[in-house]
Design a protein around this nucleic acid. Structure first.
Lengths: 108, 108
DNA sequence: TGTATATATTAACATATGCTCATATAATAA
DNA sequence: TTATTATATGAGCATATGTTAATATATACA
């Protein structure tokens, strides 16, 4: 009798642990109103930490903490200019999800 | 001097309180691995509460709680057959977001 | 009526999350 | 070097979240 081969199932929509983690992590980034507001602002253009705080009426540390979160997930990046850090989009797919969902929510 | 008119700004991507709430709520539904697994299962076909629990190795009450959550957001619906409730998809847009994200995550 | 089965609900608990204040760090300029 | 400005970090706190066991409810059937 021949050896059975273990076949790796990999449908387009199968859901291994790693994918499950990444998908839910990504959505978690978009599940908090403060982060959504920050990301929404960055749809326009890059902003410094203080500019984001002023624009959205948030504390500097709140913004900084959330930017760290978003940076860890590689959803945003920054460039430095002196002491100022300008944050901007770094994940086309996620920003598209956000745009898509905002537009959809408004046409409900 | 003429009266100033208050102009409602309503770009496709402006973000009023209501939209902000709905968008982040929707993503919150997709931010928990257990809920993602349940929704992912429902991509196939309808399942009863117990079937979901068996399939995903979860407690009946865990599944029931999460289904209530998803039902409140109108992401799933059910039909009754005797004492059995069959849950199924009830939001094409959100299920599309999920499919899209799973596929994207796998090609990272 | 009583029993069995499927699901929902409640309360308790542990953990996660988000915000804040205070302070640290980093870069620049005087 | 010291002072200034921008940002990051750590700790504490209140609240939110997810799971669980136990129990309640609802339907069907004998």
């Amino acid at each position: 009798m021949k050896d059975e081969k273990i076949v790796e199932v990999d449908n387009a929509l199968s859901l291994d642990e790693e994918t499950l983690f990444e998908v839910s992590q990504t959505f978690k980034a978009l599940s908090d109103p403060t982060r959504v507001r920050i990301l929404h602002l960055l749809l326009q253009k890059e902003f410094s930490v203080n500019e984001i705080a002023e624009n959205l009426q948030l504390r500097q540390s709140t913004v900084s903490h959330q930017l760290r979160f978003l940076k860890n997930l590689r959803l945003v990046k920054y460039r430095r200019e002196g002491t100022t850090l300008y944050y901007s989009q770094d994940d086309e797919h996620v920003f598209n999800l956000l745009k898509q969902s905002i537009e959809h929510a408004k046409h409900q």
